[in-house]
Simulated assay, not measured.
Amino acid sequence: LHYSIRQSNQGAPDIFKLNGIGVSGDASFVYTYRDRLRIRLTARDVGFIKWQNETKYYREDTSVLFKGVNVPNILKGESRFGENLADSLANEFDPFVDNRSYKTRLPAAFEASVAGTFPDGSLTVMPGFRYRLLPGYQPHFFLKGSYYLPGAWGISLYGSYGGYGSYNAGIEVVKRFGPFQATLGSYSLQGFIAPETASGASLFVRLGYSF
């Protein structure tokens, strides 16, 4: 039996006492060709957290050989069978505990996409790929199409496969007000269409400003 568990300090006296410090950053590379083709490579949340010495570290590395239990004649009513059984098992599996600092790597995300715009500028199609360094996270492939309407309106349809789920669908509606842009959308439409089979639903509002 081998295991280890780390637990940050749960008894911090106030919100100004830090359990750890860290650093993270994002990086992006964009290549544009004649305003019709855009290639983007992005890395997000690349960094780490270094936890303080108050972090508890539980660990155990042992082996147990179980040969059975010797049961005396319990019909006599004088047996003390099982009296110390729980204590003996607890002693075998009781972990060693101390305080020590350690470092956690953040679950960085990496994305690559290619966006192509039709000659009249009314339609953009963008396939892409996303991956995050998390246990059980599968490569996430997506396809997004955006159509620009008169009056500074736009609509986008989104489909994907991977991540923590399987198939996914979404929609965005965009309205521009000069340098401002407002977006209303969802990346989990199946949660509204078929809630009995979907794993969840989402709705978001995004405001942007272009310098």
Rank of each mutant, 00 (worst) to 15 (best):
L1G: 12
S4W: 06
I5Q: 04
R6P: 01
Q7N: 10
Q7L: 06
Q7Y: 02
N9H: 04
A12D: 04
P13G: 08
I15R: 12
F16T: 08
K17S: 13
L18E: 15
L18C: 07
N19P: 02
V23P: 01
V23A: 14
S24Q: 15
S24P: 01
S24D: 15
D26I: 05
D26R: 08
T32W: 03
T32I: 06
Y33A: 11
R36W: 07
R40F: 02
R44E: 11
R44A: 10
G47D: 04
I49K: 00
I49S: 00
K50G: 03
W51F: 11
W51I: 00
N53Q: 15
T55Q: 03
Y57P: 01
E60W: 02
E60N: 11
D61Y: 08
F66A: 14
K67F: 12
G68R: 15
V69A: 13
V69M: 12
N70T: 12
N70F: 08
P72H: 10
P72D: 10
I74T: 14
L75G: 10
K76I: 04
G77R: 05
G77P: 03
G77W: 02
E78A: 06
S79I: 05
S79L: 06
G82W: 03
E83D: 13
A86H: 10
A86S: 10
D87K: 09
S88I: 05
L89W: 14
L89V: 09
A90M: 09
N91K: 12
N91I: 05
N91R: 13
F93I: 09
F93L: 10
D94V: 06
P95A: 09
P95K: 09
P95Q: 13
F96Q: 15
V97P: 02
D98P: 01
D98V: 02
R100W: 00
K103I: 07
T104S: 14
P107G: 09
P107S: 10
A109I: 08
A109V: 14
E111Y: 09
E111A: 04
S113M: 03
S113H: 07
V114L: 14
T117P: 00
D120N: 14
S122T: 10
T124V: 06
M126V: 06
P127V: 05
P127K: 02
P127C: 06
G128C: 05
F129Q: 00
R130L: 04
L134P: 00
L134R: 15
P135I: 03
G136H: 13
F142Q: 00
L143T: 03
K144Q: 14
G145T: 09
S146C: 07
L149D: 13
L149I: 08
G151Y: 05
A152W: 03
I155Q: 00
S156F: 06
L157G: 07
G162W: 02
G162C: 03
G163W: 01
Y164A: 08
G165C: 04
G165M: 02
S166P: 01
S166I: 00
A169E: 01
A169G: 07
A169Y: 03
G170C: 05
I171M: 12
E172N: 11
E172W: 02
V174K: 09
R176S: 08
R176L: 05
F177V: 03
P179E: 12
Q181W: 01
Q181T: 15
A182S: 10
T183F: 00
F192D: 14
I193L: 11
A194L: 11
T197M: 09
A198I: 05
A198C: 11
L203T: 15
L207S: 09
Y209K: 10
